[in-house]
Design a protein around this nucleic acid. Structure first.
Lengths: 331, 331
DNA sequence: CGATTATGTGAACACGTGTGCACATCGGGG
DNA sequence: CCCCGATGTGCACACGTGTTCACATAATCG
């Protein structure tokens, strides 16, 4: 009324309005609490009228679940990362968890994480390799469970979800071998990522088992442009009849470059990617690829979260996801 | 020690460890507070050792800024939406604000918003038209400022950032007219969105001023597939020499369809889009488009937030952003 | 009707922090 | 030596909620 800054409506205000005690208001908003139905209706009407909502901060202080989850997503430059982030956010929302999202890298990201850790988080979900050990260490001290995906994080109290990169690439390579391809090229991901090594070795080992070897080998940065550049600078491009890319973005770039260099896909040369990002099924692309299962990833993360919350002291868990071969028009 | 669930380290713990009062610990962590340097160092060492961080919930209860901002992003199906969300999150992080992200639509999203509103938010950023009036009403009752973008929201206490859609499309249309194009087609966005109408009228009015009119007119869903479908089902596709699309995704779909129908871009027919999503500059696409300025959008939102916080009672503000013509290879 | 139980409710405490206020200590000037 | 200002610091309160505990009232049974 007289105060200048509009103060937030509090349970005491509702109590006064409804002519009951403040405790009754609190009970009206807690699930299991006992309260005379008539009084509950009265309180709800008053609350509705005043636009009251229990203050989650005060409730959290009281020992209630905070329902806050931090997600560290890194740069989100990658298309796949953005899709995962979007699905993860929706999934958490549906589970009644509210994600605080932290992006970026370097010192700024480190500061951001340190500040967000001041909130009583129920978990920290890591979607980026950078800073992951630092973050998980800090979370460990605070008793905040960590769920890592993408990059495997081997530490106490850290649960992991990871795609079987090597097996997936083996399946993809097998597909092209059965199709009669023999002269393979490979565009790898940047060296820092664990997934890069696993995917590449999946290709090489499978080729080896059939007595084949890589005829060309380039390294990209997981971006479309880098896939394009890699193919444009390939010396023996014309000699290849199969090109496997460490992710879809580079495969899409490669498709454009192959067209420019006069190769026709798939008659002339087969191309497959990895991830199955949404662009892979665009009409003008129709990329054959290995699906890095986003829905499975999200539901696994939610499962791990659930299990961790029901038993905070349980041993670290590791969930492996299988990739599925998605046949489209480039194999 | 003896308690089973690892209790969070509290200021009292640090105080005991450092042999000081709890107040001193609190002061050690507040910017302007006075404390003997020697004692501060002592406290910081103890805090470091125990992994202590002030509990943001208790601090927020005390009247400290919560630094929490909600972002309602809707479905995030659109590529542009995902890019905006990513940049917005980074921008907020750099400003020391922690975004709670809410996605989805319908009743689930409504519930999610209602639950997140229990936290003492500093602002609600709306990136989706759906539910926007409901949400802004609820925020108004709670005294939470609302910043809307994309869809203009005309209500008290709501600040807006919006692109000059009509003027932008006029620029794009003008470009193609000057290039000698005369037989225009247009692929519109879905009817529900305000931007759809504005963009279309920008095209039509500009054509009209030159004595031209639309020769073909289809409606898509802002997706790549819908742009592709729209062009494939165009009866008089061969008669057109210019195609303007309400966004980049549909333009990219249209490019693929035009190629299938034997038209060559840009010799035969010009194509422009709207937004300048990251795929627009992919080597195999190189779409000429109108840049819906994401960086400007994000910095405007941050500015509005800043101004609103320094003067909560200020009048609603509306910031208009100009689109820039990005010349690539399809005009 | 008296006694016992079921039912509903209000007062009081706890959560962890920031901060106003009073107090202690110390140095220096008269 | 005494007094006063300056500088640090501890005590206590407030924030808004959930929940325990004791109590009041109504209902049921002997």
């Amino acid at each position: 009324m007289d105060s200048d800054a509009k103060r937030r409506v509090t349970a005491a205000d509702v109590a006064k309005r409804a002519g009951v005690s403040r405790s009754a208001v609190s009970r009206a908003f807690t699930e299991g609490a006992y309260l005379a139905p008539a009084k509950r209706a009265l309180i709800e009407a008053a609350a509705q009228e005043l636009g009251y909502r229990p203050n989650a901060m005060a409730a959290g202080l009281q020992g209630r679940r905070s329902n806050l989850i931090a997600i560290f997503v890194g740069e989100m430059a990658n298309e796949y990362d953005k899709e995962v982030a979007a699905k993860l956010i929706s999934g958490l929302n549906e589970a009644g968890k509210w994600p605080i999202v932290i992006g970026g890298s370097g010192d700024a990201a480190r500061d951001a994480v340190n500040n967000v850790l001041r909130y009583p988080l129920e978990a920290m979900i890591l979607r980026s390799g950078s800073l992951s050990t630092d973050i998980s260490e800090a979370c460990g001290k605070l008793g905040i469970p960590v769920i890592a995906s993408g990059r495997v994080l081997d530490a106490a109290g850290v649960d992991n979800v990871c795609c079987r990169n090597q097996e997936a690439m083996a399946k993809g390579t097998e597909l092209l071998i059965q199709r009669g391809r023999t002269r393979f090229g490979y565009i790898s991901g940047p060296a820092g990522f664990g997934a890069s090594a696993e995917r590449k070795s999946g290709v090489i080992e499978t080729l080896d088992m059939s007595g084949l070897a890589l005829h060309a080998d380039a390294t990209g940065a997981f971006t479309v442009q880098s896939g394009y550049d890699a193919v444009m600078s390939l010396p023996n491009c014309a000699a290849l009849d199969a090109l496997i890319c460490a992710n879809d973005a580079m495969a899409i770039g490669a498709l454009g470059a192959l067209r420019e260099r006069g190769r026709t896909v798939p008659e002339d040369i087969s191309v497959i990617g990895f991830d199955d990002i949404s662009m892979a099924k665009w009409p003008s692309i129709q990329l054959t690829t290995l699906r890095n299962p986003i829905n499975g990833l999200v539901s696994s993360i939610l499962d791990l979260l659930d299990r961790r919350q029901s038993d905070p002291a349980k041993a670290s868990e590791m969930i492996w996801l299988d990739a599925e071969v998605i046949l489209r028009a480039t194999h």
